[in-house]
């Protein structure tokens, strides 16, 4: 008897667990937005973090369709931060390139000034 009630109880608990996880609509939106923003500054799917963001976004969408809400939320949270990291990385590397360029220019001008005098 106990053996039969126990599995039933487990199933109920599991169902309750599922019901407790709300649909992560807001988190999905945040992930989409972060990916959009990273793309806007020039992050591409070949960047390591961006690739992670995009694949997790897809997995999150699939999980959402399967009503695996917790899994969807976890994936979307990670996708959001992956995308934000990709964005920050692109901005930092752009600024490094700019710095290199201005340094090159300054050296060139110094050289010219030297040969001019």
């Amino acid at each position: 008897m106990i053996n039969r009630i126990y599995p039933a109880g487990m199933v109920l608990l599991l169902l309750a667990g599922c019901a407790n996880d709300p649909v992560p609509t807001e988190q999905m939106r945040l992930a989409d937005q972060a990916i959009e923003q990273a793309t806007a500054v020039g992050a591409v799917s070949t960047d390591a973090s961006m690739r992670l963001a995009l694949s997790k976004q897809q997995l999150a969408q699939a999980a959402l369709l399967d009503e695996q809400y917790k899994e969807a939320r976890v994936l979307a949270e990670q996708a959001e931060l992956d995308a934000r990291e990709a964005e920050a990385r692109v901005l930092a590397s752009k600024s490094s390139a700019q710095l290199l360029e201005i340094n090159k220019r300054i050296n060139r001008m110094r050289q010219q000034l030297g040969s001019q005098l």
């Binding site: 931060l81 990385r89 901005l91 930092a92 600024s95």
Partner: peptide, 16 residues
């Protein structure tokens, strides 16, 4: 991830 983002942001700020 948050730590990594912070590192990139500081890189950007120093460059600027």
């Amino acid at each position: 991830r948050y730590s990594a983002i912070a590192v990139q942001k500081s890189e950007l700020m120093l460059n600027q």
